[in-house]
Design a protein around this nucleic acid. Structure first.
Lengths: 228, 228
DNA sequence: ACAAAAGTGTTCCTTTTACACCCATGA
DNA sequence: TCATGGGTGTAAAAGGAACACTTTTGT
């Protein structure tokens, strides 16, 4: 039993399911693996936890190495440990999902990936390892969480229109929402700040809003809970 | 980098937060550690994941070794990886919570614990390692989950009264519930079977019910969602 | 006979749903 | 001038919250 201290039985990785939203589609960032194992296959970006870092730090590092962006919202969601999930040795992985505004990211597609690409979430290719399962678990978690916590804003630019926000929810929840009801509900929470700016599009301009995180935290501490 | 395959940097444990309900109080099962590290301190039961088992299997094994009971409901909730969380070596742990009916368990307080004891959840002693944090995370998860999934029944005997169920929810949610509203709501879900049996108590007898898991699964597959 | 828990309906209020027209703009 | 998306109110229905008395049984 004590031997476990000296001879750990498994390595540990952090794998990231990076969700992006471009205003129309939900996407996931995948890499084409440039080295064995599973070289040439598409997979979730991930990497080994190092001796001097926590899992959160490992996930953050993987993300920064891949995207060149820091301050990304990440959240751990589940750990995966099937015995043969890695073809070479025993590796357990801790799954994280990350939310970023994919319109705003200039990817650095370098690192140990031969290619880095956004895929629409219902058009993802066959994945290496058990990453299909991990992706599904992340998506299920995201669906649940987005309904009860204001994390959707992480997927939008700082300034967004109510239509942007509604589109996002419609895609995640996979149902159409009534525009008037949606607006009334989200505005009545009092966590959006209306800006004196309008986004000009092909037609009438749409008012921009931003998420008021301070106000949300204040309300939350008073028992308010986000619910869409 | 490749060395990671050969020399994992951390061991992996599964720690269990075992919740029990005795009809009146929510409790957690703790062990007094019989060996180093943290010998003599109270802690969550846990153990190393072995080479040939998954995390779920490790958690199940720990539980069976401790309680002598199998078929316990367990659920993974979070992984903890602070660098110095274990005093001897690098150990990350995957937290599980377990739900059992604590009136019905004859504990086998053997194993590598010198003592095994139920503690009321708001009267917990100082815990070793980072187990206080793990416990809190488990409790928070339980509160959220109990409101949206029918897992509370795992804490009750197979046959229970509506008052039992209400007491349980009142304790977990930390609020009083109106008896008539509670009954109407839970019965209207149609997932409880009324038995032709009555529990005799100090006063008038109370009708016993059981949870109809099949019916719940049927309803769930049709889009129904439990919500208390 | 009394104390203690079980059982039972109605009213009011809040929240959710369903639904349609006008407006401003760029092409 | 027309096509496109932005913005707005109301009525009906459903769901949630508040509330009190009677019954049964054991002591």
């Amino acid at each position: 039993m004590k031997l476990q201290y000296l001879e750990p039985v498994a390595s540990i990785t952090a794998d990231c399911v990076i969700f992006g939203f471009d205003g129309k589609k939900m996407e996931v960032l995948l890499i084409k693996r440039g080295s064995e194992p599973e070289a040439g296959k598409w997979a979730l970006p991930g990497g080994f936890m190092e001796r001097r870092e926590t899992l959160d730090e490992a996930a953050t590092r993987v993300l920064e190495q891949l995207t060149g962006v820091s301050n990304i919202y990440i959240e751990q969601f589940h750990s995966f440990s099937k015995i043969d999930r890695h073809p070479i040795s025993r590796v357990i992985t801790v799954g994280y999902y990350a939310l970023i505004d994919s319109t705003n990211q200039k990817l650095k597609p370098s690192w140990h990936a031969s290619e880095t690409k956004w895929f629409e979430i219902n058009k993802i290719p066959k994945l290496g390892f058990d990453h299909a399962e991990i992706f599904q678990a992340a998506l299920n978690t995201l669906k649940k969480e987005m309904a009860i916590r204001p994390i959707g804003f992480e997927l939008l630019p700082t300034k967004f229109t109510l239509t942007d926000l509604q589109n996002l929810y419609e895609i995640i929840l996979e149902e159409d929402l009534d525009r008037r009801n949606f607006r009334r509900k989200i505005l009545s929470m009092g966590i959006l700040t209306e800006l004196k700016e309008v986004r000009k599009g092909a037609h009438i301009g749409a008012t921009l809003y931003k998420f008021d995180k301070k106000e949300y935290n204040r309300l939350k501490s008073q028992g308010f809970s986000y619910n869409l």
